Simulated assay, not measured.
Amino acid sequence: MENKLIVSLSPHVHSGDSIQKNMYGVLIALIPAFIVSLVFYGLGALVVTATSVIACLFFEWAIAKFLLKKESTTICDGSAVITGVLLAFNLPSNLPIWIIVIGALFAIGVGKMSFGGLGNNPFNPALAGRVFLLLSFPVQMTTWPQVGQLASYVDVETAATPLAIMKGVIKGAPGMSLDQLPDSLSLFLGNNGGCLGEVSAAALLLGLVYMLWKKIISWHIPVSIILTVFVFAGIMHLVDPTKYVAPWIHLISGGLLLGAVFMATDYVTSPMSKKGMLIFGVCIGVLTMVIRIKGAYPEGMSFAILIMNAFTPLINMYCKPKRFGEVAKKK
């Protein structure tokens, strides 16, 4: 019998790495953002993150064991934990536990396991769960607690996020002004309202540096997203600085860095070639800004990534590398 080369499903790793090693490397990179969320949101951050991680682990184990009838589960490879943490990082710190559990069930059950588990899912599971909750529970998902209420969980005071203020100014909402935005230092450090993991640009950039240093990800997707948003936002700011904020404000507001660093770079749902990654990142940056400026929601990062996840197979086909031994066609 002839020997056959069998290629398994992505993610493909080499150089002595393993899926488990890289997954836990991502978790280490998420630690600074988690610490900042605890500093600014206290008990709420802990409850939301713990609930999301435990629920994701349970649903992955239960679905694999009882529905898919698998002898072994994959809850120890780190992917379910990352899904739980990233889902929590896309939620408000006062979200009720039962809604978090529903989001975890959708992320794992629908976004991941229904396609066959790790390596088969076409969409980022955490973002699928987040968008499902946003469409199903829009009031709860857009009620943002003020920072500093460390001992509170559900009964908290709320406030508008920086992106909500920007959207209000663009739409001409009465009483909205760009002067209401926090200063750049507060936005950079995380002293502002928003989802758990998106508030501190500094913590997210630390995670990016760590993952680049450990070669867990490459620079192509995050840098292409950041540069595209900077250029797009810069053009809009030059057109009307009274209506559109400076480009660096867009970069450190909302979930842009969280999405660019930790979710757009997902091994399974992003392109494999460097050229494909650049195309992928540029398109995400453009879609994010279009939704932020013209869309109904203040934030567009989640929708942009999910849309481009759907185009990943097409990008992979377009950017297919040249086959070894192929004869070039004569012009």
Rank of each mutant, 00 (worst) to 15 (best):
K274W: 13
K274V: 12
K275E: 13
K275N: 14
G276L: 03
G276N: 04
M277C: 13
M277A: 10
L278G: 05
I279V: 10
I279L: 12
I279H: 00
F280H: 14
F280N: 11
V282E: 03
V282P: 00
C283Q: 11
C283M: 15
C283S: 13
C283F: 15
I284L: 10
I284V: 12
I284P: 03
I284H: 01
G285L: 11
V286R: 03
L287T: 01
L287E: 04
L287P: 05
T288F: 00
T288M: 02
T288K: 05
T288L: 03
M289Q: 15
V290R: 06
V290Q: 07
V290P: 07
V290A: 10
V290L: 15
I291F: 08
R292E: 08
R292M: 07
R292I: 10
R292S: 07
I293Q: 12
K294H: 12
K294G: 02
K294P: 00
K294W: 15
G295S: 09
G295L: 05
A296E: 14
Y297C: 07
P298V: 06
P298H: 07
P298C: 07
P298W: 11
P298L: 09
P298E: 03
E299Y: 10
G300Q: 05
G300K: 06
M301E: 11
S302D: 12
F303N: 06
F303E: 09
F303K: 00
A304W: 04
I305N: 01
I305G: 00
I305Y: 04
I305A: 00
L306C: 03
L306K: 02
I307W: 02
I307F: 12
M308E: 01
M308C: 08
M308I: 02
M308H: 00
N309V: 04
A310K: 03
A310M: 13
